[in-house]
Structure formats: structure tokens, C-alpha cells
């Protein structure tokens, strides 16, 4: 029971400070899930993101369910997800019900201007931390660079990139090389 409450609380905190899509959650996940609670390793987090991207549903929800399920089974998955949903439900309801023209307040724009900068710096730091675990050799470095370019310049679907990379991994390491 304590485990499940802990999951709910942690994911509510993460949901309340996620600005943007599921990727913006990454630095919060690294800090809370990997560093603080040790509910998953950095590698597992990367795997969750890979799977979350190729399966139906919003990435943030998929990742929350994944972490919760690993920690405390079905109840854990459900409660972690409810946790990440809660701040959205409360905040959006209040805004939709009581604050007309929310975005027309100048101060809101300024605060967001500042937050966007923090989110950008945080995600760069996350990428650096992640690359230490994921880019273990020159082949990985090449895969990372190619995926970066395909995604940024050519807007290739993440699903295609993940599937292609997975196939490449199977071919390159067939019959051996366990790490």
C-alpha cells in the first residue's frame, strides 16, 4: 500500500511540473525514478521510451504505466498513471472553468518564456546523461547521429526509427556479443 501511494505521489509531482510533451518529463523521470527512488535504471527508462513511442497512447501515460507496473504490478501501473493525470485534471478544469483568456495575461507569457528555457536546458542535460548509457561504442554513436538527423531534418516517424534500429541490432549482433 505504501509502495502504491509513493508511486502516485511521485507521478503527481512529475505531472505537475511537466511542460510540453512526454519528452519534457525526461529530466524529472531521471531524477525521481532513476536517482532518487531507483525504481528503474537509465537503460530501462530508455527502453520504456522506445516502447512507449511505438505503442498506442500518449508517451507520458505509457511511461508512467510502465514504471508503476515494474514497481508494484497492475495496481502500481494504474496508480502511477492516475498520479500523472491528476495535476492536468485539476489545473485544466480550473482554467477552463474560471480563467477566461488565460493566455492573454502578459505575465503568463513571461513565465512561460522563462520556463521554456529551463525545459530546453534540462532536456539537453538528460540527453547527455542518457548518451553515456546508450552510446557504448562507435556503432551506437553512428546510430544516434543517424536517428537524430532522420528525426530532425526528415521528420521520419519515431516508430520506423525504433523498428529499424531494433532490426539493425539483431543483424549486427547475431549469434554473439552479449554485453
Amino acid at each position: 500500500m505504501k509502495k502504491i501511494w509513493e508511486l502516485f505521489k511521485t507521478f503527481a509531482k512529475i505531472g505537475a511540473f511537466t511542460f510540453g510533451g512526454g519528452y519534457a518529463m525526461l529530466s524529472l523521470l531521471q531524477r525521481e525514478i532513476v536517482d532518487k527512488h531507483k525504481w528503474a535504471t537509465e537503460e530501462e527508462l530508455l527502453d520504456y521510451y522506445a516502447i512507449a513511442q511505438c505503442t498506442p497512447g500518449v508517451i507520458a501515460i505509457n511511461t508512467a504505466t510502465f514504471v508503476g507496473a515494474k514497481r508494484a504490478g497492475i495496481a502500481g501501473g494504474i496508480c502511477a498513471t492516475l498520479g500523472v493525470l491528476l495535476p492536468s485534471i485539476v489545473i485544466i478544469t480550473v482554467i477552463a472553468a474560471f480563467i477566461n483568456h488565460f493566455l492573454e495575461y502578459e505575465i503568463v507569457q513571461h513565465i512561460l518564456g522563462g520556463i521554456r528555457v529551463a525545459v530546453a536546458v534540462l532536456i539537453i542535460n538528460s540527453v547527455i546523461t542518457m548518451s553515456k548509457k546508450s552510446v557504448v561504442d562507435i556503432i551506437c554513436a553512428a546510430i544516434a547521429v543517424v536517428s537524430f538527423v532522420l528525426s530532425l531534418v526528415f521528420s521520419v516517424s519515431p516508430i520506423l526509427i525504433v523498428i529499424a534500429a531494433g532490426a539493425l541490432g539483431l543483424i549486427l549482433r547475431r549469434g554473439g556479443a552479449k554485453s
Binding site: G20, Y23, A24, L26, E43, L46, D47, Y49, A50, Q53, R116, V117, V119, A120, I123, I124, S126, V127, M130, S131, K133, S134, V135, V136, I139, C140, A141, I143, A144, V145, V146, S147, F148, V149, S151, L152, P158, I161, V162, A164, A165, G166, A167, L168, G169, L170, L172, R173, R174, A177, K178, S179
Partner: peptide, 28 residues
């Protein structure tokens, strides 16, 4: 599975780096 994820992990890292670039653009 391990072999597949060996290559998937850097690919995800690359994709997140691409998201980082768009976020930097939006921020600056």
C-alpha cells in the same frame, strides 16, 4: 531482445536530441 535494444537505445537518444533542438529554438 538485448541485441535489439542495444541499437534502439542510441536511436531513442538521437531522437530525443532532435526534440531538444526544437525546444532550444522555441526557447531562444
Amino acid at each position: 531482445v538485448e541485441n535489439a535494444f542495444y541499437a534502439v537505445r542510441p536511436a531513442v537518444t538521437g531522437m530525443i536530441a532532435a526534440v531538444a533542438v526544437t525546444l532550444i529554438e522555441a526557447a531562444l
